[in-house]
Amino acid sequence: MLRNSETGFGLVTIVLHWTIALLIFALVLSGFVMQRVEIDPAPQFTLYQWHKSFGFTALGLALLRATWWLVEHNPSPLPSLCPLERRASRVTHDTLTVLAIAVPLAGWAVASTSTLDIPSFYFNVMVIPHLPLAKSEASEDFWTSVHALLAYVTLALAAIHAAAALYHHFMRRDAVLTRMLGSGAPSSGMGVRGAQKRNDTVVGRK
């Protein structure tokens, strides 16, 4: 139930996946708004702080996911996937796993190198120290660019990844999406119709 099986994802993987996905989309949106939209400086300041707190949450969960991914065996790819699709999805998932760690780390580097030296007060509960990096305008600019670049690359890759999942669900009508939604995954991509009906109700309840 909690753990992955040979054919399906367990609750730990599923909850981590969707929580991280949600956080990443929210963080890209908040990052974009606070950086590139004209908003009043007071709410902007607050948004920055929320962005950092949720960003650290994303970092913690992404590290957890990567660890989980290393210690837990992963279900084998659905038999309906051709070798190229397996390789592509494998590379995409590995890259997304790394990016989900690299993006917040780069964000942490921005906060740490900024000459503004604004403490990261995690949800107003606990100060998270800055990384031991020298503060300078040049360093802050550098990490800002890295953080932004990685964040938007992550968004693009996640969009492709999500589009692929939707393609599998609606066009190929296989179990790629549903097994990440926690259906009792069918052991093969065959017999899709029966499984599909059951899975649709699962999706409908979400």
Partner: peptide
């Protein structure tokens, strides 16, 4: 100590 802080202090915030 830096311009960004001054601008913030002057601003509507």
């Amino acid at each position: 100590r830096e311009r960004r802080i001054e601008d913030f202090l002057r601003s509507s915030a």
